[in-house]
Amino acid sequence: MNMDTDEFIKRLAADLQPVRPLRPPWARAVLWMAIALPYVAVVVWSKLTMVDPAQAGADARFVIEQAATFATALTAAMAAFRSVVPGFDRRILLLPLAPLALWLASVGQGCVQDWLRLGADGLAIRPDWDCLPMAAVIGIVPGAAIVALLRRGAPLHPRLTLALAALAVASVANFGLQFAHVRDASIMVLAWHLGAAAVLSALGGWLGERVLGWRHAPGVRRPS
């Protein structure tokens, strides 16, 4: 064995700290949801005007959209947590596609209905910058929590992992915000909510390497 590698192993073994094996990805996704969801609920409840639950519950499209949004958040988080475990089955990455497709289809159907009902006015996209600070505030804790949890894993595909994490955060934020936007035009939901989710995911993919790159043990020489 090469002397350098022998010395290298000695140094790794000398500083060895006990570690607790990570919980299964689904358990970590549930843990993240347990952190994110109460925070989102508190922010929405304290800062926004909530819709009438009876009115919201009677709107089948709203219920489907919310279920799909929540499922997208949960499955995207599961896929993100699975992607930081070496040897994972790549098919898991397709998991969020089904609820995401349902979410998109439901919003798309709403756009068509608005168009049939109101004509071109039903598809008018208005600027809605007032929502932006609230959306950012809602995303802070879920975003920080998922990054902190993901950093305990192996950054095998940091771009993909962070893109999935960003999708999970955007979805859970949307899930909360929708309770204050039940009568919004579908085109607005498509442009601002799903659009923001897409932009966040793209941004996550772009920053993946910087946020989740391999962080090596301090004091150990990194081979160039």
Binding site: T5, F8, I9, L12, V19, R20, P21, L22, P24, V84, V85, P86, R152, G153, A154, W214, R215, H216, A217, V220, R222, P223
Partner: peptide, 12 residues
């Protein structure tokens, strides 16, 4: 080896 060291908590 360094990556194995960093990611050792991910082994089930």
């Amino acid at each position: 080896l360094l990556s194995v060291h960093t990611a050792r908590a991910t082994y089930d």
